[in-house]
């Protein structure tokens, strides 16, 4: 759609359900995927709660949007950076997160994990390498 390819970074720092920010951030990611930009998502602070497995909103009566993360690979959104310190501070580990995979077209469609656990310093480096930062 566009000749310019920019690095877009979505900063997710809010927990799901208590506010709409996580859900509406994901809506931007899905629409943004059609623009063929270089997209990464960062999950830090309470944002890591968005990826916790076992979310069930039936009794709450609101839409459970966590399965949408697993579909991101189909939209070529395959870089989900999760901050290790944010997990640690919340008593979480990588095992508590949903398994989110994508098929790597450059590697004979091998299944690979989209979630990459990074340190706080690495998260800062990733943020510092972006053209456009969308903050939620």
């Amino acid at each position: 759609m566009s000749e310019t390819v920019k690095k877009f970074f979505y900063v997710n720092r809010k927990a799901p359900y208590g506010t709409i920010f996580a859900q509406e951030a994901l809506e931007v990611v899905l629409i943004g995927a059609a623009f063929d930009q270089d997209v990464s998502l960062g999950f830090l602070d309470d944002g890591v709660y968005q990826l916790v497995k076992g979310q069930d909103t039936k009794d709450l009566g609101v839409k459970n949007f966590s399965p949408t993360f697993r579909a991101l690979g189909d939209y070529d959104v395959t870089k989900l950076f999760v901050e290790k310190e944010s997990l640690d501070e919340r008593g979480l580990s990588a095992d508590d997160l949903d398994e989110i995979m994508y098929e790597d077209e450059d590697d004979d469609w091998a299944e690979k994990p989209s979630i990459r656990i990074v340190s706080r310093a690495e998260m800062a480096d990733i943020m510092a390498d972006q053209d456009v930062v969308l903050s939620f």
């Binding site: 566009s2 310019t4 920019k6 877009f8 809506e27 931007v28 629409i31 943004g32 059609a34 623009f35 930009q37 053209d131 456009v132 930062v133 969308l134 903050s135 939620f136």
Partner: peptide, 20 residues
Amino acid sequence: SGLGQLIEMGIQTDRLVTFG
């Protein structure tokens, strides 16, 4: 209009600032 206008703005501008 649609969310595409937000992405387009990110592509077409030199800087983007969020107030929220």
